[in-house]
Design a protein around this nucleic acid. Sequence first.
DNA 1: TCACGACATGAAAACTTCTTCAATTCATGT
DNA 2: ACATGAATTGAAGAAGTTTTCATGTCGTGA
Lengths: 111, 111
Amino acid sequence: MGVPLYQTKAEFFRTLGHPARIRILELLAERDHAVHELLEQIAIEPSNLSQQLAVLRRTSLVVSRREGVAVVYSISVPEVRDLLLSARRILVGLAETRSDFEDELMVPDRR
Amino acid sequence: MGVPLYQTKAEFFRTLGHPARIRILELLAERDHAVHELLEQIAIEPSNLSQQLAVLRRTSLVVSRREGVAVVYSISVPEVRDLLLSARRILVGLAETRSDFEDELMVPDRR
DNA sequence: TCACGACATGAAAACTTCTTCAATTCATGT
DNA sequence: ACATGAATTGAAGAAGTTTTCATGTCGTGA
């Protein structure tokens, strides 16, 4: 029944596939933030930020609560931290592979 | 210098954000596969599969080699396995949260 | 050399997602 | 009651991605 898991996974990764949403999650991984605090850190228009927060809310990756005049967001799935770390490791690995390759190109041809 | 890390991360996740590409990576995580073998498992047109493989090649997540008449693909970054597992855990967690919530709705209101 | 099967490529059409703008909501202070 | 600051929403156009189709390449075997 229901949607195949690989489809759900793809949707999940697509949710993470936007620079603003990554930044939001990284900031929320540190600590809860009000929207205006996020706005200070991320250089986008308020309504764009709201749209991106809405995407994250829809997938239940974050939740919001009102605190007086401000709306505060927090990560609802702590494991996302591991995922972001995991991704960073992979990217660093890939970057190294590429620069090794570039180094090779730098070395005078010995064949 | 260069592209900010959160941008690179977003691109990386976007690469994973497609059902066919997830399936490809899952199959390759098991063992190397020739294109025609992938084609048996994944219900898409050959040229579409090729396009998706090209996306994965561009980001260096997979590499291909020719073996006689076939082209064989393999995962070039083993850590991707962990990432896929990590994602599954998160998704299972989210699914549970939601069905807990549905359960709550099922329980007669006691307030 | 020719034909064939296995893949890859380029380009156009179809589809999604992003960004932006104007309008709206909702709490708070006056 | 009204004005204000904080955030959200809906809608439209711009930008990006996916799918498909026709064509091209590369080995292998006849």
